[in-house]
Structures are given as structure tokens and as C-alpha cells.
Amino acid sequence: MVDRWKRLSKGQKLLATLAFAVLFLIAVVALPAAAWVIGTESISGTSDAEFCGGCHTMQPFTEANADNTHGGDNQWGIKAECVDCHLPHDNALNYLVSKVRRGTYDIWYQTFHDTSDIDWKAKDDDREEFLFDSGCLTCHDQLESATAGLPPHDNYFAGVTESKCVTCHNNVGHSNINKYLLEHKYRP
């Protein structure tokens, strides 16, 4: 290798150095930048109601969400995206892994299963599995001090209950879900 380098002419050496520099720049700067852009785009682009509602099965939920305070039906128009509540926010890696895992599962299930006979109302009983306190507390980050003295919240923050936010706050994400499920069942 070293011998071969020595045998190159000056011009060849310059050309090789330049080529190496360009490749190095592409590898270290351009590729990560592109990956970052594509990555963030694909992460954020697959996070909102527009994307999630792309599947027929999810449309009643995105519409019921739009009818709810958290979906933008409030005086300020503030809107939480699906993943703000439905993915863990404790650390970035867990967020990504959960996103890929749950997203892949949903695509697989949607593609290979009949989703029309899911009893969504019954699934409400399992809501703690699909919603993450770390998501709630990312926005409601002053909750502990703001509601100090409120026994259920005091107990929650002291860790003496095993309840999740949605154990009690079970109407926060979607409004009039019965209606939207019915509409979609009979919509051509």
C-alpha cells in the first residue's frame, strides 16, 4: 500500500487527496445531514393525525381527536399529535424503538388482519397500555407543583399509587367516539 503511494506522481497524489477529502466530507457531513433531515422528516411526518388517519381503521380516532380539547378543539387551537400521548417520552432511544416497534406492528396488523370487528370500547379498559405518562408530563410539566395539595396527584407523584394519568383522566383524547365509529362503519 505504502509502496504504491510512493510510486504515484505528484498530480496523481493531489487528485487522490482531493478525492479522499470529498469522500470524507460526504461521509462526515453530507450523509449525516441527509440522514438527519430524512430521519426527522420521517419521524415527524409519521407522528400526526394526517399520517395515522391514512389508515381507514384510525380515521374514527383522528376525527374524534379533532373533536376533543387535546386535538385542537380549544380556544387556543393548541393541538397534541398522536405520538405526544401514544409514545413514551422518557428517553429518545425508547421513543424511537417504541415508535418503530408499534408502528411496524400496526402496519402488519392493518395489512394482514380484518380490523372491522375490533371492540374498541372494550379496549378502553386497556388504555394504560397505549398511553404514556411521560408523554402527558412532557407538556404538563408543572403539574406536580401546580396541583400540590390535591390528594390523588400528591399520591401519584409520591409513587404510592400504581395509577396512570388515564386511569382517572379517561376522556382526554377523543370525543364522541361512538358516533365516529358508527359513521365510518357505514361510510362507503
Partner: peptide, 25 residues
């Protein structure tokens, strides 16, 4: 490592609901 992080994250966020409340009073 990824699996471990994912599981630990899930465990902290997806605990069982309602244990024996008396123990925590």
C-alpha cells in the same frame, strides 16, 4: 442494549393498574 432500554422504558410507563392500596396508605 436497545431491547433492554425499550423494556425498561415500557416497564416504567406501563405498570399494572391498581395493586393492593392498603400497602401504600
Amino acid at each position: 442494549a436497545l431491547a433492554a432500554i425499550a423494556c425498561s422504558g415500557d416497564a416504567s410507563d406501563e405498570g399494572e393498574v391498581a395493586g393492593d392500596p392498603l400497602a401504600e396508605l
